[in-house]
Simulated scan of single mutants.
Amino acid sequence: MRAAAAAIALVLAGCAGAPPVACAPGETSGEVAQLFFGRNIGDEVGVSEADFEAFLDAEVTPRFPEGLTQVPAAGRWRGGDGQVRREPSFLVVLASDGALDRRALGEVRDAYRRRFSQEAVLQLTTPVCMAF
Protein backbone atom coordinates (compact mmCIF):
# COMPACT_ATOMS: atom_id res chain seq x y z
CA MET A 1 0.00 0.00 0.00
CA ARG A 2 2.83 2.41 0.88
CA ALA A 3 4.62 1.55 -2.36
CA ALA A 4 1.48 2.34 -4.36
CA ALA A 5 1.05 5.65 -2.53
CA ALA A 6 4.69 6.54 -3.19
CA ALA A 7 4.32 5.71 -6.88
CA ILE A 8 1.20 7.87 -7.15
CA ALA A 9 3.01 10.73 -5.37
CA LEU A 10 5.89 10.50 -7.87
CA VAL A 11 3.52 10.59 -10.83
CA LEU A 12 1.63 13.57 -9.42
CA ALA A 13 4.88 15.38 -8.63
CA GLY A 14 5.84 15.03 -12.30
CA CYS A 15 2.69 16.94 -13.26
CA ALA A 16 3.72 19.96 -11.20
CA GLY A 17 6.26 21.10 -13.78
CA ALA A 18 8.23 19.79 -16.67
CA PRO A 19 10.91 17.52 -15.26
CA PRO A 20 14.16 17.69 -17.18
CA VAL A 21 14.53 14.87 -19.67
CA ALA A 22 17.76 13.09 -20.54
CA CYS A 23 18.68 14.53 -23.91
CA ALA A 24 21.34 13.42 -26.35
CA PRO A 25 24.45 15.54 -26.93
CA GLY A 26 23.53 18.60 -28.98
CA GLU A 27 19.95 18.60 -27.70
CA THR A 28 18.39 20.84 -25.06
CA SER A 29 15.60 19.87 -22.70
CA GLY A 30 12.48 21.93 -23.03
CA GLU A 31 8.73 21.84 -23.12
CA VAL A 32 6.05 21.74 -25.82
CA ALA A 33 2.42 22.74 -25.47
CA GLN A 34 -0.24 21.81 -27.99
CA LEU A 35 -3.46 23.82 -27.92
CA PHE A 36 -6.53 22.55 -29.79
CA PHE A 37 -9.00 25.27 -30.80
CA GLY A 38 -12.39 24.23 -32.16
CA ARG A 39 -13.88 26.43 -34.88
CA ASN A 40 -17.60 25.72 -34.47
CA ILE A 41 -19.91 28.14 -32.74
CA GLY A 42 -23.00 26.10 -32.11
CA ASP A 43 -23.29 23.55 -34.90
CA GLU A 44 -21.65 25.65 -37.62
CA VAL A 45 -18.15 26.89 -38.38
CA GLY A 46 -18.04 30.32 -36.80
CA VAL A 47 -14.32 31.00 -36.47
CA SER A 48 -12.85 31.92 -39.85
CA GLU A 49 -9.16 31.71 -40.68
CA ALA A 50 -9.04 35.53 -40.55
CA ASP A 51 -10.71 35.48 -37.09
CA PHE A 52 -8.14 32.98 -35.87
CA GLU A 53 -5.20 34.94 -37.32
CA ALA A 54 -6.47 38.03 -35.49
CA PHE A 55 -6.75 35.97 -32.29
CA LEU A 56 -3.15 34.73 -32.70
CA ASP A 57 -1.95 38.30 -33.26
CA ALA A 58 -3.82 39.70 -30.25
CA GLU A 59 -3.61 36.90 -27.68
CA VAL A 60 -0.99 34.26 -28.45
CA THR A 61 1.96 36.00 -30.11
CA PRO A 62 2.28 38.72 -27.42
CA ARG A 63 2.45 36.01 -24.73
CA PHE A 64 4.73 33.68 -26.72
CA PRO A 65 6.83 35.90 -29.00
CA GLU A 66 9.44 33.16 -29.52
CA GLY A 67 7.15 31.69 -32.17
CA LEU A 68 4.52 29.07 -32.79
CA THR A 69 3.30 26.63 -35.39
CA GLN A 70 -0.32 26.63 -36.53
CA VAL A 71 -1.81 23.54 -38.18
CA PRO A 72 -5.34 23.02 -39.52
CA ALA A 73 -6.95 19.98 -37.91
CA ALA A 74 -10.16 17.97 -37.88
CA GLY A 75 -11.31 16.91 -34.44
CA ARG A 76 -13.91 14.73 -32.80
CA TRP A 77 -14.85 15.18 -29.20
CA ARG A 78 -17.63 14.52 -26.73
CA GLY A 79 -19.11 17.74 -25.38
CA GLY A 80 -20.59 18.33 -21.96
CA ASP A 81 -23.96 17.24 -23.33
CA GLY A 82 -22.56 13.76 -24.14
CA GLN A 83 -22.84 14.21 -27.92
CA VAL A 84 -19.85 13.31 -30.12
CA ARG A 85 -19.18 16.03 -32.65
CA ARG A 86 -16.86 16.50 -35.59
CA GLU A 87 -15.31 19.91 -35.73
CA PRO A 88 -12.75 21.69 -37.88
CA SER A 89 -10.03 22.96 -35.59
CA PHE A 90 -6.69 24.68 -35.35
CA LEU A 91 -3.72 23.14 -33.56
CA VAL A 92 -1.13 25.54 -32.19
CA VAL A 93 2.24 24.18 -31.08
CA LEU A 94 4.44 26.21 -28.74
CA ALA A 95 7.98 25.15 -27.79
CA SER A 96 10.39 26.51 -25.21
CA ASP A 97 13.88 25.57 -24.10
CA GLY A 98 12.58 25.99 -20.55
CA ALA A 99 9.19 25.68 -18.91
CA LEU A 100 6.30 27.34 -20.70
CA ASP A 101 4.35 30.00 -18.81
CA ARG A 102 1.30 28.12 -17.49
CA ARG A 103 -0.47 31.34 -16.54
CA ALA A 104 -0.11 32.65 -20.10
CA LEU A 105 -1.37 29.33 -21.52
CA GLY A 106 -4.44 29.59 -19.30
CA GLU A 107 -5.03 33.19 -20.37
CA VAL A 108 -4.92 32.13 -24.04
CA ARG A 109 -7.41 29.31 -23.44
CA ASP A 110 -9.74 31.59 -21.47
CA ALA A 111 -9.58 34.35 -24.09
CA TYR A 112 -10.52 31.92 -26.88
CA ARG A 113 -13.41 30.42 -24.90
CA ARG A 114 -14.80 33.88 -24.18
CA ARG A 115 -14.23 35.38 -27.62
CA PHE A 116 -15.66 32.46 -29.61
CA SER A 117 -18.19 30.95 -27.17
CA GLN A 118 -16.27 27.69 -26.78
CA GLU A 119 -16.89 25.01 -24.17
CA ALA A 120 -13.21 24.07 -23.95
CA VAL A 121 -9.72 24.41 -25.39
CA LEU A 122 -7.57 21.30 -24.95
CA GLN A 123 -3.98 21.81 -23.78
CA LEU A 124 -1.32 19.09 -23.81
CA THR A 125 2.06 19.90 -22.28
CA THR A 126 5.06 17.60 -22.62
CA PRO A 127 8.75 17.67 -21.70
CA VAL A 128 10.90 17.26 -24.82
CA CYS A 129 14.43 17.26 -26.21
CA MET A 130 15.07 19.95 -28.82
CA ALA A 131 17.76 20.64 -31.37
CA PHE A 132 18.09 23.37 -34.01
Rank of each mutant, 00 (worst) to 15 (best):
D51F: 08
M1F: 13
R113P: 03
R114I: 07
G82S: 05
P88A: 08
T126I: 10
D81L: 13
S48R: 05
L91W: 08
A5V: 14
L35S: 05
F64S: 05
G75N: 01
A33V: 06
L12A: 13
G38S: 10
R85N: 09
R63N: 00
F116S: 00
V47K: 02
D101H: 00
V32S: 09
S96A: 15
G38D: 08
E87G: 07
G26R: 05
A33W: 02
F116L: 00
A131T: 15
A9L: 13
F36K: 07
A24P: 07
R78P: 05
R86G: 13
Y112C: 03
E107F: 04
R114H: 02
W77S: 07
G30Y: 03
S96E: 04
D81A: 14
I41D: 05
D101K: 00
F52N: 01
G30T: 05
T69N: 14
E53D: 13
V60H: 01
F36A: 11
A4L: 15
Q83C: 10
R113K: 04
L56W: 07
A18D: 03
A95E: 08
A73I: 10
A18K: 02
A54T: 11
C129L: 06
E59T: 04
V71D: 07
A13G: 13
G17L: 15
D81R: 11
G26W: 07
Q34D: 11
E27S: 11
Q123E: 15
A73L: 11
F90L: 08
R115A: 05
V71M: 12
V93S: 01
E53T: 13
A73C: 11
R85Y: 07
E31V: 08
T69Q: 11
R103A: 15
E107H: 00
A6Q: 15
P20H: 15
Q70T: 10
R115P: 02
G26T: 07
P65K: 06
A3E: 15
E66G: 12
A9F: 10
I8K: 14
D101P: 06
C129G: 04
A4D: 14
A50R: 11
L100A: 03
G46N: 05
A111G: 02
M1S: 15
G14T: 11
V21Y: 09
F132Y: 14
S96V: 03
E27Q: 15
V11C: 13
E107Q: 09
V71Q: 10
V84A: 08
A4M: 13
T126R: 09
P65S: 03
A58L: 08
R103I: 13
R86H: 13
Y112P: 05
S117A: 12
A54D: 11
G67W: 04
F52M: 00
A16V: 14
Q123W: 00
A104C: 02
A50Q: 10
L35Y: 00
V92C: 04
G106Y: 04
A131P: 06
A3F: 13
E31R: 06
A18P: 12
G14H: 09
S117P: 02
F37E: 01
V71Y: 09
S48C: 04
P62Q: 09
F64K: 03
G30C: 04
Q34C: 09
G38L: 10
D101V: 03
G79K: 07
L105D: 02
